[in-house]
Design a protein around this nucleic acid. Structure first.
Lengths: 342, 342
DNA sequence: AAGATTGGCGTAAGCGCTTGCAAGATTACC
DNA sequence: GGTAATCTTGCAAGCGCTTACGCCAATCTT
């Protein structure tokens, strides 16, 4: 079942069928109708592989993410997909599970499919990939890693700012013993986030005791990390998580251990995913504008009709502290004796 | 940058390069090495559109789901993807947001890409799609809809059984006023689930008052539905949700309204998603074997090396009640005066 | 009314790859 | 050392589509 079958049935050439299907060139409306009817009757569905090959463009975007399970990534994907559809593009998504090897193979796959733009929203990164993509000339967006190049747009979120907001907030509440829960601490961006936390703590919260632990991304990881902290003997008054998804597990585990949140321990997340409002207590977190990220990605990857493709550049997004119910003044801290207390 | 460039550089023909790349036929190991080096040096990445077109197979599975945000679907996807990778296949996923129109266009897209198998895990269904796919001869799996055909495998979960388990369990706990929360009540399978609930209630739980409401899938929908119930004046002692994802919102809203779960109202979900354990109180639900579903899908879509493709058939999966913390005996019910009470 | 446009369509040359076929190069065998 | 068997490799015909290019007929000029 191919163009030729349709052409024969409609008594035209394949060229004409192609023109009708792509709405290009001039076709008499009566022939157009004949063609469409033939398409209908044969239930013809064009071979996109052939189409992409012949035309040299695929109107398809690729997106590679570290963990689709984490709503953070999914939210971005959904925005990109919605934007892309509006412009007549499709989007292909691949999941890496934080494995560099899968990242490489996913990117290769996308390149092999000749996507017209590629978004790489991952924490793991194979360094060799950046120059390779830069040279390819393909429009690319990196999130939180790499530097802008002519064809590479770079979206970053001001994590240090967000961390600072959390630390200052917690410090202001009297917290002096804090724990930081992350995941994949060996991966660049995630390691940076931990470092950022420690630096912010050192800078803005003098005489604070700090502990860091790591586990897998997700609620189960948060749960395990919490157990580890509690078993260590260190008793923080606040636990800061690298993301909301892990924080869900933290809150659950504290609850299971009959430790009150926020009365005994305050908990913070990062990202402000939708679920953050649906756990009890609702999670205090830092908002990352995921919709904006999605829009930026689409803008960077799809050439706008008027004017040319925006050249690669760098964007730094601001964060915002969202205070909910999972944080409170530290019970352990006596504000009376606190010189910072006004 | 194509096969010819590589061939020229390695001083062989494109045929030989192709054989090396596909590990097929005999190639002297020295030439193989030359070719691989050329590939490396040129950073050559084969054009998959051309490859699929020429070879007529794509080693790609397509999967269409209603709502990727709901972990239920994501879990299935992850299993399928893992299985598929193990067999050297890729999987493309599309999201429909429960919109039949998107279902149709997603399926068309998959067909256009000439996937070698297609899984349709959706609640919405355009009836015309079933015969169309049946005729196409493409291996297809439907979840919860349609009937088996030579090339169509049908996976169903015994929802009536699951509902019965819930109802009997709740009835046994003394609940006599129940509410059912669903979403998209006009879509076949979801409507059936509601009906199933009502029938099971009628059959197994005499003299029970029942109310049903519907909202969007997800926690927000569960929240809204709960508000609606409470505002209606009907005061159920148990709320049964069509899935866990909505139940999360229900529990959250009851908590916000200072209604104790399970003391004042018991809540049940369906699916047994991972998050069900991470909300407080942990959700009583019905387990659906998502991993098994994933395996079944892969088995049905990928021809096994030995033996032929399993022909399309129908599978009915059993469910299992998972009791956690969100359910308890009805406070409103006096067991002393209950004739059922032993 | 004859030449100049334009609209509508077909011809055919690719797009980059796979693969059946057959030729040339090696190796095996007696 | 000669023939047969086996390896290697190249040639070239597609896969199903898009898209110059050009032809013919219809319409427009003056």
């Amino acid at each position: 079942m191919n163009l030729e079958d349709v052409a024969r049935r409609a008594k035209v050439s394949t060229a004409t069928v192609s023109r009708v299907l792509n709405n290009v060139g001039q076709v008499k409306s009566s022939t157009r109708a004949r063609v469409l009817r033939a398409v209908e009757e044969l239930r013809y569905s064009p071979n996109l592989n052939a189409r992409f090959l012949a035309s040299g463009r695929s109107r398809t975007l690729g997106m590679v993410v570290s963990n689709l399970e984490n709503p953070f990534f999914l939210d971005i994907f959904r925005t990109v997909e919605a934007d892309a559809h509006r412009r007549g593009y499709e989007v292909l998504v691949a999941n890496t599970d934080y494995r560099p090897q899968r990242l490489v193979s996913s990117v290769r796959l996308m390149l092999g499919r000749r996507v017209s733009g590629l978004a790489v929203i991952v924490s793991e990164m194979k360094p060799s990939l950046i120059p390779e993509l830069a040279e390819s000339g393909l429009p690319v967006v990196f999130y939180d890693v790499g530097v802008a190049k002519p064809n590479i747009t770079n979206i970053k979120v001001d994590y240090p700012q967000g961390m600072r907001r959390i630390i200052e907030y917690l410090y202001g509440l009297g917290h002096r013993r804090m724990a930081f829960i992350g995941h994949h601490p060996t991966l660049g961006p995630l390691h940076d986030r931990k470092r950022t936390f420690l630096e912010a703590a050192a800078d803005y919260a003098p005489n604070v005791q700090v502990m860091t632990v790591a586990s897998a991304d997700g609620p189960v990881g948060g749960q395990n990390a919490t157990r580890e902290i509690l078993q260590s003997g260190f008793r923080p008054t606040a636990i800061t998580c690298v993301n909301d998804f892990m924080a869900m597990g933290v809150i659950r585990e504290l609850h299971a251990q009959r430790i009150a949140v926020p009365d005994d321990i305050s908990v913070t997340g990062f990202d402000n995913i939708g679920l953050a409002e649906f756990i009890a207590p609702a999670l205090t977190t830092v908002h990352i504008p995921r919709e904006e990220i999605g829009h930026l990605i689409t803008e960077a990857l799809i050439p706008s009709r008027r004017g040319r493709q925006e050249r690669g550049h760098e964007v730094l997004l601001e964060t915002e502290l969202v205070v909910r119910e999972s944080t409170a003044p530290s019970a352990a801290h006596s504000f009376a004796s606190d010189p910072d207390f006004l």
